[in-house]
């Protein structure tokens, strides 16, 4: 897609990420300042009752926004709303998706989500891309 404005209702932007690695989460912890150890240290995750470390919800939300980054000359993300609905574990393969729901001369509304390799939604929400 060279121009987001050419998307039609029902069409999508999508990308599948490399399997989630511990280094991804260590880097996000450092860059964001969120050092909650359930995201990086196995023992702490287990103490919290988890089967293993889980990704920061904001790591997944941050990743999902990149579907729109190539189009910041055409518009910008005016609204970005996410509900965290599932956990992301090490080695999960996450697919990011934005499906165009509605389009006017002023904005484009997308349903956005990230799903894991089992097809389960881990985050879900909406983006309003305002057009210049």
């Amino acid at each position: 897609m060279s121009n987001i404005l050419e998307l039609n209702k029902g069409e999508s932007l999508s990308v599948t990420l490399n399997p989630v690695s511990r280094m991804d989460l260590i880097k996000y912890a450092g860059a964001s300042g969120d050092f909650n150890p359930i995201h990086t240290i196995d023992e702490e995750a287990e103490k919290a009752g988890l089967p293993g470390i889980i990704a920061h919800g904001m790591w997944t939300m941050g990743n999902l926004a990149k579907l729109f980054t190539p189009y910041f000359e055409e518009g910008f993300i005016q609204d970005y709303q996410i509900r965290f609905s599932g956990m992301v574990f090490l080695s999960d393969v996450i697919t990011l998706k934005a499906e165009l729901q509605n389009k006017t001369v002023e904005y484009m509304d997308f349903d956005v989500k990230a799903i894991n390799q089992k097809g389960r939604e881990v985050i879900k929400g909406k983006v309003r891309f305002a057009i210049y």
Partner: peptide, 16 residues
Amino acid sequence: KKGLIHGEQNYHYKRP
């Protein structure tokens, strides 16, 4: 300090 669950996150921008 522990046990918080992040439920939702919403941004609204006038510009980047």
